Amino acid sequence: MATLQSVGRKILTYISPSAKEQSAYFKITRDISEAQFYLGNRFQEIYLWQEVADRDMDVSRIENLLYGCSFHDDEVAMTEADDDFMSKK
């Protein structure tokens, strides 16, 4: 009987710091978008904006993603909007 040699092994992948940062901006943007546009939950929106301030994130970058991208679930559209914004900074 053969045993699997790969049990318990994990494939490690490298994620660059800029990709991690972009992912964090996408997540907070999606959360704010949901609170503001879909749920209409002002308290959650205020909490999320406070998190942005606490993490010293770029507000203009988040606003660009909120209003410069029609579909926040579309990773490609978000990436294009963010890359365009960052190239102009």
Rank of each mutant, 00 (worst) to 15 (best):
I46L: 10
I28G: 01
V7W: 08
A2K: 12
S33W: 09
A24V: 05
L39Y: 08
M78Y: 03
Q36R: 15
P17V: 04
T79F: 06
F26M: 05
C69R: 02
D31C: 01
Q5E: 13
A35I: 04
Q50N: 15
Y67V: 02
C69N: 08
L39N: 11
I32A: 02
E51L: 11
R9K: 15
E63P: 01
L39H: 10
K88P: 01
S23V: 03
Q44I: 07
V52D: 04
S23F: 11
N41M: 04
S16R: 11
L48W: 06
Q5M: 11
A81W: 02
K89V: 07
A77F: 03
S6N: 14
R61S: 06
F26W: 08
M57E: 03
K88D: 12
I32K: 01
T79R: 14
N64S: 15
A77H: 03
S18R: 13
L39G: 03
V76Q: 12
K20Y: 08
Y67G: 05
R30S: 09
D31E: 15
Y25E: 02
F43P: 01
E75K: 11
Q22C: 05
I11G: 00
S33V: 02
M57K: 01
G8V: 05
H72K: 14
A81F: 00
S70M: 09
E45N: 08
K89W: 05
L39Q: 15
T13Q: 09
L66P: 02
K10P: 00
L66M: 15
K88S: 12
A2F: 13
Q44C: 03
L66V: 04
K27N: 12
V7S: 06
E51I: 06
V76H: 09
D82H: 03
M1W: 03
M1D: 07
Q44A: 10
A24L: 12
K10Q: 13
T79L: 10
D82T: 04
D58R: 06
D73E: 14
Y14R: 07
L12S: 07
K10L: 14
Y67I: 05
Y25C: 00
F85G: 04
T3Y: 08
P17C: 01
K89A: 06
E51D: 14
N41V: 01
R42Q: 13
T3M: 08
I62T: 00
E45H: 06
F85I: 06
D82S: 13
L12M: 11
Q50E: 15
I15D: 05
S60D: 14
G40D: 04
L48Y: 05
A81L: 01
Q5F: 09
G68F: 02
K89P: 00
R55Y: 08
Q36A: 12
M57F: 09
Q44V: 07
E80H: 11
D56W: 04
E75N: 10
K27S: 13
E75M: 11
M86F: 05
F71R: 13
E63S: 07
A2I: 14
K10M: 13
K10T: 13
R30F: 03
Y47R: 13
A81T: 15
S23M: 11
I15P: 00
Y38S: 05
L4S: 13
S60F: 06
L48N: 03
A24M: 11
L12Y: 12
D58G: 02
D31G: 01
E34F: 10
I15Q: 13
A24G: 06
D84N: 10
V76K: 10
